[in-house]
């Protein structure tokens, strides 16, 4: 599974919409393995950064170079959105969909879907319509649907926003298992507890720029800038 996505090099990468820069320019090099947690105040560009790296938002400046050709890199990635997208189908069919898109046979896809539903605790809901699931169940479904293609890199945009502690723990367990299997995670969050628990590296965003980037232990104990220190302490960052 560990083939050639990393290292990925962002060089002056930025995404703009109608001439207005949403995030960037970003210079960043990410190596394989582990969890990179993206934190920052509302509107600092976390979602935009993740979308830009994934290719869901157009790269308007600079470059993003994966260790393999970009189309191949995109096929090895998955994305869990801040608001999960539920196909108007059953849970089973939602899970099977990415496999079917990639040309898997229906029987096998549905079987794998069953296995994954079991793994994320949706085993009893395979035949429910996905749009009527609860928020937490939808998040789990979105997560399993992203992991089912065994991506090398998984983006998660606030996967636990509006979930209670128990649902958050369940999701974090799934993520830890994925990391142990070698999946690289890039995760944005507002929850400092989650950031501390999950992070191997931290990218702190402010005003659309990467303000600070480094190993998590160092970032949380000795933040390099007053803004990062203030943010960690839950103060308002200007």
């Amino acid at each position: 599974m560990v083939s050639g996505l990393f290292p990925v090099v962002l060089n002056g990468a930025a995404t703009a919409r109608r001439g207005q820069i949403l995030v960037g320019p970003v210079d960043l090099t990410l190596n394989g393995g582990g969890v990179c947690v993206v934190i920052g105040p509302n509107g600092s560009g976390k979602t935009s950064l993740l979308r830009m790296m994934h290719g869901a938002a157009r790269l308007t400046h600079g470059s993003i170079d994966w260790a393999c050709p970009t189309p191949q890199a995109r096929r090895a990635q998955a994305f869990v959105f801040q608001r999960p997208v539920m196909l108007r189908r059953t849970v089973r069919e939602n899970l099977a969909y990415p496999l079917r898109i990639r040309g898997a046979r229906r029987r096998e896809a549905l079987k794998t879907a069953g296995d994954w539903a079991e793994r994320v605790g949706l085993g009893g809901m395979l035949d429910r319509q996905a749009p009527v699931l609860s928020g937490g169940e939808q998040q789990k479904l979105a997560l399993a649907r992203a992991l089912i293609i065994e991506p090398e890199l998984l983006f998660l945009d606030e996967p636990c926003a509006s979930l209670d502690g128990r649902a958050m723990r369940e999701i974090e367990e799934i993520l830890v298992t994925a990391r142990e299997h070698g999946t690289r995670l890039i995760l944005s969050t507002h929850d400092m507890g989650q950031a501390r628990r999950m992070a191997d590296e931290v990218a702190f965003l402010l005003h659309g720029k990467v303000h600070e980037f480094g190993p998590a232990a160092e970032f949380f104990t000795r933040p390099g800038t007053p803004q990062a220190r203030a943010f960690i302490n839950g103060e308002i960052v200007e």
């Binding site: 994934h54 994305f79 997208v85 969909y97």
Partner: peptide, 11 residues
């Protein structure tokens, strides 16, 4: 509704 997901899946 589906846009983000389908784009992400490279359909």
């Amino acid at each position: 509704e589906y846009h983000d997901l389908l784009i992400s899946l490279n359909v």
